[in-house]
Structure formats: structure tokens, C-alpha cells
């Protein structure tokens, strides 16, 4: 309940923030704080320095960049959920943001923060995986781009280096996507027990490309590659969808917890792949 002491800095520019991060031992970046602050209150995380990036101008925008949309580090879940650009071009992300936690958390927490935190059951990582997004990571060493597929390593672990800040997510336009979940308190309430985001490109009738991402099921949100392959080249028939659903957990280790056994989660992953595909192909 009562966080340990720390030094607090609120830089006015990204460069300043990156320098502070590079120069500090055991620093944490604070955007919305919805994951960091509870962990600090339980004293499970004890940073010596907290770098609050909320005062840096320009990070709170969603911008149209032609072939993609760019979501800045300080864009809150609520903004992602309601933004017309995101709803039009990255529906799954808007839906995942809308299904994240509750109103207050959506008002304060950030999309990039959720992605960087990489909870194994977070909503939005599944959407950005399915959408084929790119992470923009900055440090004093420069800026690099990381494909979503290479970003998530394990529970609470990403390829972000300790001196890097996730400054934006770039989500390509094109195709259609949805996000469907079963929450711990039923329907889409609370963290997902299992959820799936599906993206398809079916501009010319048959499905020319597809990506399916699943969260809440394994130690990280993952791309169900073989499941997606099962619908590529088809017209999205119920057989194709069933084939995809049956491969939802191929190659992954399914986790068990208070809300689901391995058998149940494996089944749910299939159900939600099926539901997501049915929705997106409607």
C-alpha cells in the first residue's frame, strides 16, 4: 500500500528522459502507472528513480502517417478505444483497449505502457500482434523499430533494453480485425482467461493474408501462425475456421491458473479464435 522511496524526475523532453534513463541505475519509466504503481505499492518493484514521461510534449497523439497510424507513448487506453482512426484501421486494438480493465484505468493507463509491461494476459498486446504493428524504441543510442512478433519474450519481459523507452506503436492500415475475449468475471470484464485478436486481408474475396494472436493462454501473448495459415487462401468457410481454431495453441505451452486448466484454456483459445474469425469475416 505504501511505496518505498524513490527519486522522481519529470523530464520536459524525450532526450532528457532518455539521458535520465541511461544515467540511472534501476530506473523505471512511468507513463500511466497502472501496472508500475500497484507493483511499487506491494513493494514487488523498488526503482531508485522513476522517470515520468507524461510531461513530454507530443507523446499523447494518435497520428495518421499514411500507410500506418502512430500511437504515442502517452496515449491512454480510453483514447485508443475511442479514436476514429484506430477504430477504422485497427479495430482489434480499439476493441482490446475498450476491453482493458475499467474506466479509471483506461483513463490513466497507456497503450504503450500496457505493451511494454507485457502482462501475459493483457488485452492490447494481442491486438498489436495480430495487426502486425511495429514498436518504436528510443534510447540515447538512437531509435530502433521492433516488429510486434519479435517484441514479447516472456511474462513481463520484452526485447526492450533497460535504457529504452517505447515511444510509439506504428500500426499498419489495411485489412480487417477484431478482438474477442472471455474475462475473469464473465463476458469481457477483467483480465482475459483467454482472448484472440484476428486480422485478415480479404479485399478480393479469398483471404490473402491473416494473423491471429492469443493472450491469457501462455506465458506471453503469441501469434498463432499455423492457425492463421489455415484460413489463408480460403474464403473463410466454417471448415477453414474450424481448422484454424483447432490449431490455436499449436506449439505453445498452455498455462494453468485459478481461472483455467490447461485443457480448458486450450479449448477456450480455439473457441475465441473461432469467434474472432467468424466476426472478422462477417
Amino acid at each position: 500500500m505504501y511505496p518505498p522511496n524513490f527519486d522522481y524526475v519529470a523530464p520536459a523532453s524525450l532526450d532528457e528522459a532518455l539521458s535520465a534513463l541511461a544515467g540511472a541505475d534501476n530506473a523505471k519509466v512511468l507513463s500511466g502507472g497502472m501496472s508500475l504503481i500497484p507493483l511499487m505499492k506491494m513493494r514487488l518493484v523498488r526503482p531508485t528513480t522513476v522517470i515520468d514521461i507524461s510531461r513530454i510534449p507530443g507523446l499523447d497523439a494518435i497520428t495518421d502517417e499514411g500507410d500506418h497510424i502512430r500511437i504515442g507513448a502517452m496515449v491512454r487506453h480510453a483514447q485508443t478505444a475511442t479514436d476514429p482512426l484506430v477504430n477504422e484501421h485497427a479495430t482489434a486494438l480499439a476493441q482490446a483497449a475498450a476491453a482493458t480493465a475499467d474506466v479509471q484505468v483506461r483513463n490513466q493507463g497507456t497503450t504503450c505502457g500496457s505493451i511494454a509491461h507485457a502482462d501475459l494476459a493483457a488485452d492490447q498486446p494481442a491486438a498489436i500482434l495480430a495487426l502486425g504493428a511495429t514498436m518504436v524504441a528510443a534510447s540515447v543510442r538512437g531509435t530502433r523499430e521492433i516488429p510486434a512478433a519479435e517484441f514479447f519474450v516472456d511474462t513481463l519481459t520484452t526485447t526492450l533494453e533497460s535504457d529504452e523507452i517505447l515511444t510509439a506503436v506504428k500500426v499498419p492500415k489495411g485489412g480487417k480485425s477484431v478482438y474477442r475475449k472471455l474475462g475473469r468475471r464473465g463476458s469481457d470484464s477483467d483480465y482475459p482467461i483467454a482472448a484472440a485478436a484476428a486480422w485478415v486481408d480479404a479485399s478480393y474475396g479469398t483471404i490473402s493474408d491473416a494473423r491471429i494472436a492469443i493472450t491469457g493462454v501462455s506465458s506471453k501473448p503469441y501469434l498463432a501462425t499455423t492457425a492463421a495459415q489455415a484460413v489463408v487462401g480460403t474464403d473463410g468457410s466454417s471448415e477453414a475456421i474450424a481448422a484454424a481454431a483447432s490449431q490455436a495453441t499449436d506449439g505453445v505451452v498452455v498455462l494453468e491458473d485459478l481461472y483455467g486448466t490447461v485443457e480448458y484454456r486450450t479449448h477456450l483459445a480455439s473457441v475465441y479464435v473461432q469467434r474472432a474469425l467468424e466476426d472478422v469475416l462477417q
Partner: peptide, 28 residues
């Protein structure tokens, strides 16, 4: 202390937030 109950909800700059999951310095 986990941001679940919402008893601490206040409105900051027009948005409902949980004041137990925000440092006072963030509200400067």
C-alpha cells in the same frame, strides 16, 4: 491497493482516475 475497488476515484483534468494509483507529483 491494486486499483480494483475504485473507492478512491477522483476526477483529474476531467477524467475519472483512481487516486490510490497515482502519485501526488503526477497531479502537479
Amino acid at each position: 491497493e491494486t486499483g480494483y475497488c475504485g473507492a478512491c476515484t477522483v476526477i483529474v483534468d476531467g477524467r475519472a482516475v483512481k487516486s490510490c494509483t497515482m502519485f501526488a507529483v503526477q497531479a502537479d
